[in-house]
């Protein structure tokens, strides 16, 4: 049995029916906002997006631009197993595998391209990776681009990406370690 609640509508008073006073009341609200923002536009919550970025709270769960992790000796953690490329629903990962001359077991990616213009940021590649090599924690949100080529991330770009990202306020111990690692590996930043 559904209870029925009758809402009594209040009849408009005479002054409300004339509508003029209500108009003035409404205009007072808009005029207040107008002059408040005219005097100090910084009160407006809008950010000028490509120039300004907001700190992304809860970045652990936030999926942003990819990076490839490195081992302490500067080699990529990735073993070119193609798990991520297989899991990718947008087919945006392209890998070419190669072998180390001195290592008969492990492979490494000769090429590792991510086409950001096709990526849907689902995070499947991160889930699929058995080596924990690809991760989406850079806090860089790719915006638009003037040419398609600039949206194609190569292995070098992915290795250069830093955790915490360019605009992140989390630049701390992790990032310092990462920069040291980059310097050691000889990849130009």
């Amino acid at each position: 049995m559904i209870g029925i609640k009758k809402i009594k509508q209040r009849n408009l008073t005479f002054l409300e029916k004339i509508y003029l006073i209500e108009i003035v009341k409404g205009m007072l609200v808009t005029v207040t906002h107008f002059f408040r923002n005219l005097i100090d536009i910084t009160r407006v919550p809008t950010i000028r997006y490509p120039e300004e970025h907001l700190r992304l709270e809860g970045a652990a769960r936030c999926r942003t631009q990819h990076r490839l992790k490195m081992r302490p000796d500067g080699k990529p953690k990735c073993v070119a197993c193609f798990m991520c490329a297989t899991a990718c629903p947008a087919y945006c990962i392209y890998i070419e595998a190669g072998e180390y001359a001195d290592d008969p077991i492990e492979k490494y990616p000769v090429k590792f391209n991510i086409d950001l213009s096709r990526c849907v940021f689902c995070g499947m590649c991160v889930e699929a990776c058995p080596e924990d090599a690809i991760i989406m924690d850079t806090e860089i949100i790719p915006g638009g681009a003037y040419a398609r080529e600039t949206l194609m991330l190569t292995k070098g770009d992915l290795l250069k990406n830093l955790p915490g990202g360019e605009y992140s306020s989390r630049k701390g111990a992790t990032q310092r370690l990462w920069i040291e690692l980059l310097d050691k590996s000889g990849i130009k930043r």
């Binding site: 005029v31 906002h33 923002n37 005219l38 536009i41 009160r43 407006v44």
Partner: peptide
């Protein structure tokens, strides 16, 4: 611009 300021936006810039 006026409508933007009234609605707490920045407007064309």
């Amino acid at each position: 611009k006026v409508s933007a300021l009234m609605q707490d936006r920045i407007g064309p810039n």
